[in-house]
Design a protein around this nucleic acid. Sequence first.
DNA 1: ATGTTGGACATACCGATGGTATGTCGAAGA
DNA 2: TCTTCGACATACCATCGGTATGTCCAACAT
Lengths: 197, 197
Amino acid sequence: MRSRRVDYTESTRHALVESALELFTKRGYAGTSLDAIVKRARVTKGALYHHFSGKQALFEAAFDLVETTAMDRLTSIMDGDGTAWERAMAGIQAYVRVCLEPSYQRIVIHEAPVVMGWERWREAEEHRSYGLVRAAVEALVAAEEIEPLPVEVTARILFGALHAGAETIASATDPKATAADVSRTVVAVMNGMRRGG
Amino acid sequence: MRSRRVDYTESTRHALVESALELFTKRGYAGTSLDAIVKRARVTKGALYHHFSGKQALFEAAFDLVETTAMDRLTSIMDGDGTAWERAMAGIQAYVRVCLEPSYQRIVIHEAPVVMGWERWREAEEHRSYGLVRAAVEALVAAEEIEPLPVEVTARILFGALHAGAETIASATDPKATAADVSRTVVAVMNGMRRGG
DNA sequence: ATGTTGGACATACCGATGGTATGTCGAAGA
DNA sequence: TCTTCGACATACCATCGGTATGTCCAACAT
């Protein structure tokens, strides 16, 4: 009952998500029509509505793809060895790089809260990128590397700070130099929270 | 050549912006139709397109209104007396309160970067709320209250951190307690940047 | 072998919405 | 009094998200 020769179903679905991902990144959610998406994916709206319940669902699929890709990269970096502090620093560096990618920036940071609604975005992020940041903060507190600040709030604030830093880098005339500044500043902030500093 | 008895023109324009402001705050930009806006303002689309070039322009008018209102409140608070540090702290408290207002949060923080585009939003903010944060950071550096970090980047990061903090408060089950946590954490961050700390 | 079912699409169509083109009315100037 | 013009109102159009329907074909059942 499943599949003919090959699994056309999966490739069609993948083509749609890929197409949506690219167009949403370039033109944004509102600026991208379903016709444009299906045209790029070389299918029709019938296929789209067969696989997804609508434009939002397709957006969330693209969102999931970007997040999953980012997650994989981040976990592999943060699971390395070293102290909690060292891994947190490595994680920050890595996360800022993730934030610099156009797809992540536009889809995950900017559009998702608007398209999905902030609450839903927050829930999704709870187990994704934000989850990693939070875990890092928890590890730092547990290791008594930083002052015992409220974890949830500290993680949220750090999360927001990293986004802002990445955006600043992305739109800077001298990204290299700005990236160095962001790095310095974030480290300074973290150092400020450090114990006995 | 201008106005009949009274200035109907101005009241019509104001009604449209007010209506747009309220509806954009409640339903968001995409979720608000022009028909709904003009209906609430008791005018027609003809009036809307006479005063504004389109939906985006109307949004920006609403954006300006929210920003101007917020600016006035903030400047009056931050222009008080005290040291640069004291005024910065007062400004932070005040700005977090501003961020908690639904209109500011939804229109200025969430939707504007998407609707206007991030670059345009940044430019607009340059002389508005962000300008105040930046000025505060500059004052702190000038007064040698904090470490000589790059002003632009530090201000951006602080700006992002404040937004994240405000959002956390707004969606918290216990806003009062969370607000206190945010306050503590932001102050901790600022203290971390402080000289000789 | 043949009829039947159901998944994987394609095509045609509909309603809502942003935007435009045109019409109207009344006040101010010539 | 005639014309002009600003401040709208009305009618209309094109695009777009979503739906309803049709088609094709493989996997069963008989």
